[in-house]
Design a protein around this nucleic acid. Sequence first.
DNA 1: ACTCTGGCTCAAGACGAT
DNA 2: TTGAGCCAGAGT
DNA 3: ATCGTCC
Length: 308
Amino acid sequence: MPRKEIIYRDRDRYRMGVKKLRSLIEEQAPKAIKNTEFKALEGRIIAVDTSNNLYQFLTAIGTENGSSLMNSIGETTSHLQGTFYRTIKFMSNGIKPVFVFDGAPPTLKSGELAKRSAKKKEAKENLDEAKETGTTEDVAKFSKRTTSATRKQNEECIKLLTLMGIPVVRAPCEAEAQCAELVKGGKAWASGSEDMDSLAFGTKILLRNLTASDQKKNPLWEFDHEKLLYGTGFTHDQFIDLCILLGCDYCESIRGIGPVRAFELMQKHKSIEEVVKHLDPTKYPVPVPFPFDEAREPIQEPTCHPCR
DNA sequence: ACTCTGGCTCAAGACGAT
DNA sequence: TTGAGCCAGAGT
DNA sequence: ATCGTCC
């Protein structure tokens, strides 16, 4: 097993934290969140972050027996089925979607690649074992872990949407960043994404659970960036600093600093420079290296097609 | 008493008929 | 893949 | 609301 010193570069750790943002906003700026519904979005242009969507379709549609929907020659069609009906659902509610696809994923480090392939191998072994001895539920469960969307399936969805007359944007990098740019540039009213990073990228409105089928279990949430800043008293750059402290993709966070302390520290000191200056290094040693300043740049000015 | 971590588990879409 | 919820254990 | 089906 990798030791802590190695793990610190692990993407899983990077990602953790930002998900805490939701409850943090709920407590600190409750007016920035509101429960909404599909009908309320009529007439709106929404930039929909499609990352994960294909995976969801592939694993959720027609998977009772562990496989998926297929055409007459055995090619998977679940992603097309899902994309088609979801698009129709938007349109028949008067919503105008712009689907934003992820560009090339960031180059992975070799350690992570190895870990990932090991995981995949393990999932495959589990699946094979389940096929031999397990129940059909087991087979279905484990096949989800071996599923991933192919390049071809991605292109098929783009083609389908194009034929349906739906605008598609290929983000050069992260889709959420591109969605935020579309909103900031006035091309869309909101971002539809599951990722709270969208707010750090500066989208004016973030819609969450836009893609959930069960609105009872997963109600639609609307996050308002301006009200978030107003409620917390932060500037946007201070908010970005908070997100970096909570843990982002670009820089490790400080062990022992979670949502509560990060928020308090940012309220008091207004920037990571000042926060670090006032931290007791024996209790909260900062990571080495701790490139928080370089981490700001890809959040403030992420790689994407400009709309302004 | 509160906060944070890390390990664990779970579920994941949309339709129409009933 | 992803988040979310829960819990035990340790740190402040 | 639940459930079987979508290919």
